[in-house]
Simulated assay, not measured.
Amino acid sequence: MDSITHTLFGLALYGTVDKADMSRKTKAAYLITTVGASQIPDIDVISKLWDNEGLYQMWHRGITHSIFLTPIWALLFYFFCLYFLKVKDKRLFYLGLLAVFIHNTSDLFNAWGTGYLEPFSPIRITFGTISIVDFVFWLIFAVAFLLSRRNKVRTPFYFRMAWCFIILHLVIQTSQGYILHREYKVDYDQVALSANFIPWTFSVITKKDNTVTIYDDNLFKEKEALYVLNSKEDAELETLFKQRPEAKTLFEWSPFVVIVDDDKQLGVYDPRFYRNGQSFLFEYIEKNSLVE
């Protein structure tokens, strides 16, 4: 998910806590823990300062998103509050644990995927059933916030209900994506999903032999083929991987790629991010650089 959504997750967790009898310092500890722990896995973006080998796709979604590091991050915030704020409350650990778990698990549902099982498995888990920016999440939290302004006593109730609706939206959206995925698997070798901004609509990316086809589809309309792409599956990629290590990372982390091998370029791109003739994730080298 995007940083705004992760921040909203943290604020919404903070909203579920009954703070009527809390001191100002304790409230601060809870706010720092819920919001901070909701963001901490994204600290891996600083890896771009030393990662010269392209080991992380866009320097993101690596081991810091591992489910196995969840208690480590929770302890970090627990001891931070204990040392700096002098607040000793074991509930802070469990709240931090929940916040990190929500961050890492929610990232599984969009097209980027994440290293959820690192370091024990390098596999990138991605369902593609929730848009990376999901405005339904924003709307639900906005309603809970507005209701809480009208009746502050019932604030925890409103935000707990908001989480129920979040889970319901997640289940409905993912169930529809699962049904579509099963339907397409009958006719294609590989299938990947990328949820659109409009709820219940998906880009369905399929691959059969050398052909990648991208469809716009949902359960309530006829599918529409948006793009048909040709992948040069017989291309030799060792030179590309040697000169652009990022390309190897992209090749390994994506469900499947489109290989480009023409007179000008040798490269790979992720078709889940293909829009208007190009993909956001495209790693390549110029053929003239090989001649030189």
Rank of each mutant, 00 (worst) to 15 (best):
T201R: 05
V153C: 04
W73P: 00
Q39Y: 04
Q278T: 13
I140M: 03
I166Q: 11
M1D: 04
P156M: 12
A20Q: 11
I167H: 04
A162N: 03
Q173S: 13
L168D: 02
L69V: 13
F251A: 07
T249Y: 03
T5V: 06
E238L: 11
Q278G: 05
L117E: 01
I198H: 03
F79T: 10
Y188H: 11
I259V: 15
K223E: 12
V133S: 05
T16M: 15
P122V: 04
I285M: 12
E183I: 11
I46Y: 10
Q278R: 14
R91C: 09
G177W: 00
T126I: 04
M161Y: 14
D189M: 06
W163Q: 03
D262S: 02
T16K: 06
F159G: 06
V136E: 05
L55M: 07
D18L: 07
D262E: 07
K264V: 08
F135C: 03
Y94G: 14
P255L: 11
V257Y: 08
A29M: 08
K232G: 02
V258Q: 08
I179T: 13
A192V: 09
V204Q: 00
L8Y: 09
R149Q: 15
S106G: 10
V257S: 10
L69H: 06
V186E: 09
H169T: 04
L147A: 06
S203C: 01
F197L: 05
N230S: 14
F109C: 00
L180Y: 00
I43H: 01
L55R: 06
